[in-house]
Design a protein around this nucleic acid. Structure first.
Lengths: 129, 129
DNA sequence: TCTATATATACCTTGACGCGTATATGCTCT
DNA sequence: AGAGCATATACGCGTCAAGGTATATATAGA
């Protein structure tokens, strides 16, 4: 349960985060809105806190939880490498064309030199490195 | 294993996706670069394919896998609601002020009418800040 | 046809995670 | 001090997913 990705894999935790985006909330408020037992909420909040998604302050008997930005940025940073791929439809088209091409020409691997000929089959008894 | 979030929770799957961002790859190429057993790679690819992250075409005995944009967009869409929060420090200040206010006014739950039986007090001897 | 290669799938085991229940801790007011 | 509320934690359980090993399927070449 280290990475931010595992944290947000849980639907209830995503729901909690979505609720906290409007304003900070106490455990009881989250509990009521999400209609889930209090221990469940507390436990998810603990996970979220330890992962740095939220922090809490004490208000009498309550704990007020609010978001922290860092883990979101981490996720966003990872997602960024794909953004150029899917946000631009240009890229999608590009890849589509590239694919049709490589389907026939038998694609060039980035690492492998690819000395392939036209109709040369991919015959290549590659020894396992 | 429905949501896109659960899919990218797995580190090896994220690694596969990151490799595919440069160009499409065969299972064997991924296997070598990631240094993990072939069945593992195939299994992860299957999960990724069923979740719509990748698609494959046949090249002789090989399968060439490449990315598909939709699930990434889904993740990004969810992340978007938090973006205004972490990118602008302004918002952080806003939240801080809002919090101090809501401490006193005691927010009302959307579904429950909030029957504060006694007059609301919300004692707060230690604001902690 | 037989063999080597490339990928997929089946079976099993293990460990982690989420939930429910019960209980503990902490705070406040009377 | 005692009661009541708000939250945290401990424990047992069921499930599910990931890894490993073995095997199945498909394709190409001799």
């Amino acid at each position: 349960m280290e990475s931010a990705f595992e944290i947000i894999a849980e639907p209830n935790r995503r729901a909690i985060l979505s609720l906290l985006v409007s304003s900070q909330q106490s455990v009881g408020e989250l509990e009521r809105q999400l209609r889930m037992p209090q221990p469940t909420v507390s436990k998810h909040l603990r996970v979220l806190r330890e992962a740095g998604f939220v922090e809490s302050t004490v208000d009498a008997q309550r704990r007020l939880y609010r978001l922290k930005p860092e883990p979101f940025q981490e996720v966003d940073a990872w997602l960024a490498q794909f953004r150029r791929f899917w946000s631009g439809h240009l890229d999608a088209l590009e890849r589509h064309l590239d694919r049709m091409d490589s389907d026939r020409t038998e694609r060039s691997t980035p690492s492998t030199p690819t000395k392939r000929k036209s109709k040369e089959k991919t015959r290549r008894p590659k020894p396992r490195t």
